[in-house]
């Protein structure tokens, strides 16, 4: 699969841009966190596209971003359960 470039994204409408990035992020995240991949991808997609492209190009920053997202997600789920 050819790498996603800014010009490819620029050619697509905003909704489509998120979809294109998500389709590439998901498998990378799934390799690390199969159970949370959908949620983590959904969280990361809220980040600005330019930053997302950087994450796709550098696995290290993607990994640390994913770990950050997992921590936020777990904290969020903890507050969820405490509300109940």
């Amino acid at each position: 699969q050819e790498p996603l470039t800014a010009s490819m994204l620029a050619a697509a409408p905003p909704q489509e841009q998120k979809q294109m990035i998500g389709e590439r992020l998901y498998p990378l995240i799934h390799a690390m966190h199969p159970m949370l991949a959908g949620k983590i991808t959904g969280m990361l997609l809220e980040i600005d596209n330019s930053e997302l492209l950087l994450l796709l190009e550098s696995p290290d920053s993607l990994h640390s971003k994913i770990e950050e997202a997992v921590a936020v997600l777990q904290a969020h789920q903890a507050t969820e359960t405490s509300h109940k």
């Binding site: 905003p14 909704q15 998120k18 979809q19 389709e23 998901y26 949620k39 959904g42 997609l45």
Partner: peptide
């Protein structure tokens, strides 16, 4: 209220349109 946060984050599923994107009205 907690209800809005229940469906956060908007989950992404490959091959399905991602629901998290704010619908921009034309």
């Amino acid at each position: 209220n907690g209800s809005s946060s229940v469906n956060w984050p908007p989950e992404f599923r490959p091959g399905e349109p991602w629901k998290g994107y704010p619908n921009i009205d034309p």
